[in-house]
Structures are given as structure tokens and as C-alpha cells.
Design a protein around this nucleic acid. Structure first.
Length: 311
RNA sequence: GGCGACAUAGCCAAGUGGUAAGGCGCGGGUCUGCAAAACCCUUAUCCCCGGUUCAAAUCCGGGUGUCGCCU
């Protein structure tokens, strides 16, 4: 079993900095678990580690995928496992760092992505055949798998459609709705969650949004739009991107979106914390202040040392 | 100092006698192929005191506060 350190935490909590220092202290390499930083061109808005930071530790899955190519959690699992296994094979410690909960699950749990991948046209067909009525759609799911219907809220059209798609493509029952989640047998996951007082976290978020503007976020977005990105592309769904595009297309200026971006980022952070709290084996480390917290860092080292399986 | 209007949750706000709409924000939660996505839940007794009434956020009197106009 491979020892793998997972650094989770809400956006702006300080993951990047601590992951880098851990990598330096423990002879590790970082594998990102961030659904936006993985894309090329979205450097500022996704708050990628800077060149200087990336020079301090090897980073994988940052800046690797073209945003125009469809990318999914299943794809992520495949790529990330490849990198993790390779890092371990070279005798180094894989450190998975990021804020995308589903990507964490893909690695921590034994998630089954063998189902056929999403087919937009098929889903669209199902949606239309139900008259675009969520209630009708949900009835259709209920007929196929009553338990799945119980778990998925009728208003959640997106998840209902995917469930129907899978069931109509041959699965009898959606295994994940049995409530059983096994850990991924490949990895001994040592999970650290970074947290801060809510007020402080929100303050950091607010300040970071200002910094992103100063760093040229509006210009980055203009460039993406000039490259031909449309609102349907992933790049435009990221926080910071969609809000500015909306503001500009309504005739305003990029700065009009600043408060909305701050708020959406705060809400995102809250959702991330909700997600991470579910891990029974997470070790929370509380950070405070803007300076590097040696105390917290040594706590992290202890957690890793204690969680490690020795040969 | 006078006249008038208003006073409902953190904010905006409906309700004009029968026991508090809605929106936003906050907080909590769900999560198996777009996840920075999609979705769900929660949140007040109506400024204070007294009166009328079976029953008042709603009517009456007084107080306090805010806003506007006048002197």
C-alpha cells in the first residue's frame, strides 16, 4: 500500500504554501486535486501556484489540460493515480493537495467509474421526452431504481439525468446508493484538513479577490474570450470567470463583479468544508494569521509520521 | 419648536382584526463521469407601555426612534 498524504482545505486557506513546505521536508511531490488549476490558460482566476512556488516543489496536474477538452472526475482519477504511483515508485512521497472534494473521493475511496461516460445528447433527449418537467423525470428514475430516486432530490435535474442514463445503459442498480463506501485499497491515505476561523478565512478570500484583479484577472478573461471561449466551456464556469463575463456582457465593467465573486467564493469555501467534514479519518489543523505557522506545520509532520505505514 | 410619514428577522419587504408571504444574506447539509457544478434544509412573533376586542403586527392613547417639510 502506498502512503499518500492528502491536504484538503477551503479555498484561500493556505494549502499551497503548506503543501510545498511538506514536499520539501518529506521529499515529496505534489499532485493537485483542483478542478480549475488543472486547466491551461486559467492562471490568475484559479489562483495557481506561481512560477516561484512551483520551482520549490514538483507539481503535477496543474496547467495540464486544455479547457476546451472535456474533462471529468473519472479522467482525473486515472491521471492522478498514474502520477501518485509513479512518485511512489521513485521513492518519493505523494502529496495530494487541493479543494475539489469529488477528486479527493475519487482517490480516497474505491470509486467505480466503469459506467459509460456521459452522453450529452442522450441526456438532452431524456430531458425533452419528459417535457423538461423535473417531476416527470424523477418518476422515470423511480421506476428504474426506487432507492436512487429516494436519494436524489427531484429538483436536481443534473444528477437525476445521469442516474437515468446509467440505468438505461444497463446498470440494474446504482451501487453508490447502497451507502457503502470502501477506501481505495491502493493507498494509505493520511488526510489533513486545513481550517481557519470563519471570519479570518472570509477576510482572506475578500483580500484575495482584490489581489486577483490587481494581478490582471480581467485581462486574462479578455484573452480567453478572444481565444474563442464560450460560456459553455469549463473555463467560464469557474468563480471569477463567470461573474466577470456576465458583468461585461451586461455592459458593465469587470470591477462590478467583485462583490459577487467574493460572495460566491465564500459560499464555495463553506461547501468545501461541508464536504471535508464527512471524512471520518480527517485530521484538522487550524491555521491562523498570514505568516507561516511553524506550530501548525509541525503538527502536520506529526500527523503524517503517525499515519504512515512503515516498511 | 410645529406639522406629517414611517417603525415587521442581519438586510430588503408583503400583510390594514383571526393568529407572521417572499427575496437576499448568514448558518447547516447532499454529493460516483461538466463538481469553482447541480441541488436541499434552516432563520421573527411584528419598537416600548397601556387600552378596545372572544381575537391586534393590524384599531385607539401615550412614549421612544428615524426620515421629510415648516419656523
Amino acid at each position: 500500500m502506498i502512503n499518500a498524504v492528502f491536504i484538503a482545505g477551503p479555498t484561500a486557506s493556505g494549502k499551497t504554501e503548506y503543501a510545498i513546505q511538506l514536499a520539501r521536508a518529506l521529499n515529496g511531490e505534489i499532485v493537485s486535486a483542483d478542478s480549475m488549476q488543472i486547466y491551461k490558460y486559467m492562471d490568475i482566476g484559479s489562483a495557481k501556484p506561481t512560477k516561484e512556488e512551483r520551482a520549490l516543489a514538483v507539481h503535477w496536474l496543474v496547467d495540464e489540460i486544455d479547457p476546451r477538452t472535456p474533462f471529468t472526475a473519472a479522467e482525473y482519477k486515472k491521471l492522478a493515480e498514474k502520477y501518485i504511483d509513479d512518485i511512489a515508485a521513485r521513492g518519493k512521497l505523494p502529496i495530494i493537495c487541493g479543494g475539489t472534494g469529488l477528486y479527493f473521493n475519487a482517490l480516497i475511496y474505491d470509486m467505480d467509474f466503469s459506467a459509460p461516460e456521459g452522453d450529452d445528447a442522450y441526456r438532452q433527449g431524456v430531458w425533452e421526452s419528459c417535457g423538461k418537467d423535473p417531476a416527470v423525470l424523477h418518476e422515470r428514475l423511480k421506476a428504474l431504481d426506487p432507492h436512487a430516486a429516494e436519494v436524489i432530490h427531484p429538483n436536481n435535474v443534473k444528477r437525476t439525468l445521469r442516474a437515468i442514463e446509467r440505468l438505461e445503459h444497463g446498470e440494474d442498480k446504482l451501487a453508490e446508493f447502497s451507502g457503502v463506501t470502501k477506501l481505495n485499497p491502493k493507498y494509505n491515505s493520511i488526510l489533513i484538513g486545513l481550517d481557519r476561523d470563519r471570519d479570518e478565512l472570509y477576510d482572506r478570500i475578500n483580500r484575495r479577490v482584490v489581489k486577483l484583479y490587481d494581478a490582471g484577472l480581467p485581462k486574462e478573461i479578455r484573452t480567453l474570450m478572444d481565444m474563442g471561449f464560450k460560456s459553455s466551456d469549463v473555463a467560464m464556469k469557474g468563480i471569477g470567470y463567470k461573474e466577470i463575463i456576465d458583468a461585461v456582457s451586461e455592459g458593465g465593467c469587470p470591477e462590478d463583479a467583485a462583490e459577487t465573486i467574493k460572495q460566491n467564493t465564500r459560499r464555495y469555501a463553506k461547501r468545501q468544508l461541508t464536504w471535508f467534514r464527512r471524512y471520518p479519518h480527517i485530521n484538522w489543523v487550524r491555521l491562523s494569521g498570514d505568516d507561516f505557522d511553524e506550530n501548525a506545520f509541525s503538527n502536520m509532520l506529526d500527523i503524517i509520521e503517525n499515519g504512515r505505514i512503515k516498511e
